[in-house]
Design a protein around this nucleic acid. Structure first.
Lengths: 201, 201
DNA sequence: AACAATATTAACCATTTAGTTAAACCAAAT
DNA sequence: ATTTGGTTTAACTAAATGGTTAATATTGTT
């Protein structure tokens, strides 16, 4: 084959450009340049911009979901589960730092499709919701509903990635290394924060 | 005057379309339609898309910042301050539910300009950072650095707005009224969550 | 080597889109 | 009523952009 990795190079380039510019702002030409190839070759591998976007986006997403599903199944003590969820979520984010912004855009662009995709992948929250409610009834955690807990968790994990260009400037004098360290610390900080907030000791 | 409110109608329409589609996805024609006017009239009031976007975006933003500055000045007990910040931030969000998405986009599109604007408006965090550190030293709150606390707070407040199209579907059967109620509850929930997490009682 | 299949390119096309222009409209002032 | 100012419109333009085509190159197969 001419090159098996051309397709991969395109996907890499597309990730870069899509996250930098968003689906609409991204230009096929820019993706081609970034990948070091001709624009027509893009359409050889992915016949439309929409298809390229979908393959990139849902490709990455489908790698996140299984690991989350796995965690929700575990039957550890609840305090450990908090740690596991934060760890898994955050570790994925640090490997795919562009993903949150990606998802946010897609949430607004085509929420229906995204929602359907998640359902198709078997991701639904009713089990976890029951578990949380159970823990509350049992008095193991302070009274909180699942949606609130979920929004809190996701918000805390995701915000530093979404807001990085601004936060790094405003809070760390645009020092990239310091920000990386900040991101590393967050896993422990968030876990402790949630535990202190909801665990009845 | 032909109409003093034409400009206002345009701004309203632009907010709507920009948030729905983002700066790049938005079409001047769509904004014109939404405002019930001719496309040329847009360029009569705002000579370019970029200018329209900036006026809309920074217009809204400049209304948020002063109220936040005000709060940071207050010298109440810390627990009340938490409540005040959450209240002010959240109340602004509920009046401008499109703002978070707006800011997120801008953070990626032109972080430098955004950062400069915030500085120009007198928004800087060193004072608050000192205050937080002081409270930690004094033993009033558990050990946490300002950036972490800040990211936690913003994340929790903002996430339900950013994620609404998805969250509403997945967590509330796409019931809009229920989601509105959820948003209303969050102010109290977040305040309590933070207090329990960091206040040494 | 010859052939076939896949990969890659340069040039081109059709459409969309931000922005312009020149004319019409309308309200108030003279 | 006419002039004058801002306002609004329909029609137009130039540039950008996603996508196509047809020809060329490369690789694998017999």
């Amino acid at each position: 084959m001419g090159s098996d990795n051309t397709k991969e190079k395109i996907v890499q380039a597309a990730q870069l450009v899509f996250i930098r510019k968003g689906m609409d702002g991204a230009r096929m030409q820019e993706i081609a340049d970034e990948a070091g190839i001709n624009k027509a070759l893009l359409h050889y591998y992915f016949h439309s911009k929409q298809q390229l976007f979908n393959e990139v986006f849902y490709g990455v997403l489908s790698r996140l979901i299984p690991s989350l599903l796995e965690i929700f199944k575990l039957e550890e003590p609840f305090s450990d589960k908090i740690e596991a969820v934060v760890r898994e979520y955050d570790s994925f984010m640090s490997k795919n730092p562009f993903l949150p912004q990606f998802i946010i855009n897609e949430i607004n662009r085509d929420p229906e499709q995204l929602s359907r995709f998640m359902s198709d992948q078997g991701l639904n929250f009713s089990k976890i919701e029951e578990r949380i409610n159970g823990e509350v009834s049992a008095g193991n955690i302070r009274s909180i509903t699942f949606p609130h807990l979920f929004a809190n968790l996701i918000g805390m994990v995701v915000m530093p990635y979404i807001g990085r260009p601004l936060f790094q400037r405003k809070l760390f004098n645009n020092d990239s290394a310091k920000y990386d360290q900040f991101l590393q610390e967050r896993r422990a900080v968030i876990t402790r924060f949630i535990q202190q907030a909801i665990l009845t000791k």
